[in-house]
């Protein structure tokens, strides 16, 4: 099956229009396979995506590009108990997960 999702990139354009991601510390809650993560992460200073789905996180990590290796991390965690200290991130993104 050939399936394309958002070939025009409207999702990233609308994300950029509603928030400035440049140089920010970003937490993506429920990042899944990292489909959106990899589109915006280059603008951030640090992006951490987490999800409860190990299989999805494996795909997200496999899609890593060498130039983003230092600024993107993935973790297995639940939004019920986010494993970070208070007041750590500038932006939290709930993408397709609320």
């Amino acid at each position: 099956m050939t399936l394309q999702k958002d070939p025009e990139g409207f999702e990233k354009k609308n994300l950029d229009s509603i928030v400035d991601l440049n140089g920010k510390h970003i937490l993506e809650v429920g990042c899944g396979e990292g489909r959106l993560t990899w589109k915006y992460a280059s603008a951030s200073s640090l992006t951490i995506g987490f999800d409860t789905d190990h299989s999805a996180l494996r795909i997200a990590r496999a899609d890593s590009s060498p130039d983003l290796h230092d600024k993107v991390r993935f973790a297995c965690a639940s939004a019920k108990n986010i494993p970070f200290r208070k007041e750590t991130f500038d932006i939290a993104i709930l993408a397709w997960s609320l």
Partner: peptide, 9 residues
């Protein structure tokens, strides 16, 4: 985990 005046999308 958000900083003061942090943004939730």
């Amino acid at each position: 985990i958000l900083k003061p005046r942090g943004i939730l999308i």
